[in-house]
Amino acid sequence: MAERVSIAAVVANGSELRIELEVPERRPLRLKILQPVELAEEFEANDLFSCLLKARISLEEKGIVLCCQGSRPIVFPSGMQRQMGDGRYAYVLADGEFSAASTEVDIFAPADRWEVGSVADQKDMVMRYFGFS
C-alpha cells in the first residue's frame, strides 16, 4: 500500500503548483511524483528522507521547491529516525542536541514557502548545527 500526499511547491518565477506524491508505507522505498505528469519520476533510497532529497534535487533542477517540512533547512532526521521509522519523521534542529524534547515533524507535512530552502541550504544548516563549518 502507498499513501498519496499533495504538497504545494514554488516555481522560480514565483508561481505555485501542487505536486502529488506516492509515499510507500513499506520497503522497497520508492517515492513517486505522480502529478503533474510532466514531472513524473521515481526515487529509491534506503529511507524516505533520502528519497525526498533525491526528488527535491530533481525538482530544483527544474526551478521548483517543495513546501514541506522535509524542505526546511532546520529539519533533519536522526540516525534512529532513519533506521527505525524509515526517515518519515525528522527533528526541527534547535540549540543543543537531538533529545526526547526535540520537536519531531512528518517530512511530508506542509510548510510555508518562506520556511523552505534548497538542498544546499539544508546541508549548510546541518553542517553548521553539528559544528562542521
Rank of each mutant, 00 (worst) to 15 (best):
L39R: 00
L39A: 10
L39I: 05
L39H: 11
A40C: 05
A40H: 14
E41H: 14
E41K: 11
E41G: 11
E41W: 13
E42N: 12
E42A: 11
E42D: 13
E42L: 01
F43S: 00
F43L: 01
E44R: 00
E44L: 02
A45G: 06
A45H: 13
A45K: 07
N46E: 10
D47Y: 08
D47K: 03
D47T: 08
D47N: 15
L48N: 10
L48T: 06
L48D: 03
S50I: 00
S50G: 08
C51M: 01
C51I: 12
C51W: 14
C51N: 05
L52Y: 07
L52C: 07
L52F: 13
L52R: 06
L52A: 06
L52K: 01
L52G: 04
L53K: 05
L53H: 09
L53W: 14
K54P: 00
K54R: 10
K54F: 05
K54L: 12
K54D: 02
A55I: 04
A55C: 15
A55E: 02
R56S: 03
R56M: 13
R56I: 08
R56A: 02
I57E: 05
I57K: 08
S58T: 08
L59P: 14
L59I: 11
L59V: 09
E60P: 13
E60V: 04
E61A: 15
E61I: 12
K62S: 13
K62E: 12
K62P: 11
G63L: 09
G63I: 05
I64F: 15
V65G: 01
L66H: 11
L66I: 09
L66Y: 13
L66S: 05
C67R: 01
C67V: 08
C67H: 01
C67K: 01
C68K: 02
C68D: 04
C68I: 03
C68S: 03
C68A: 04
Q69R: 13
G70N: 10
G70T: 04
S71I: 03
S71L: 02
S71E: 08
R72P: 04
R72A: 03
R72I: 10
R72E: 03
P73N: 03
P73K: 06
I74L: 10
I74E: 09
V75Q: 00
V75P: 12
V75D: 00
F76L: 00
F76A: 06
F76I: 08
P77K: 07
S78M: 09
S78L: 01
G79V: 15
Q81S: 07
Q81F: 15
Q81V: 12
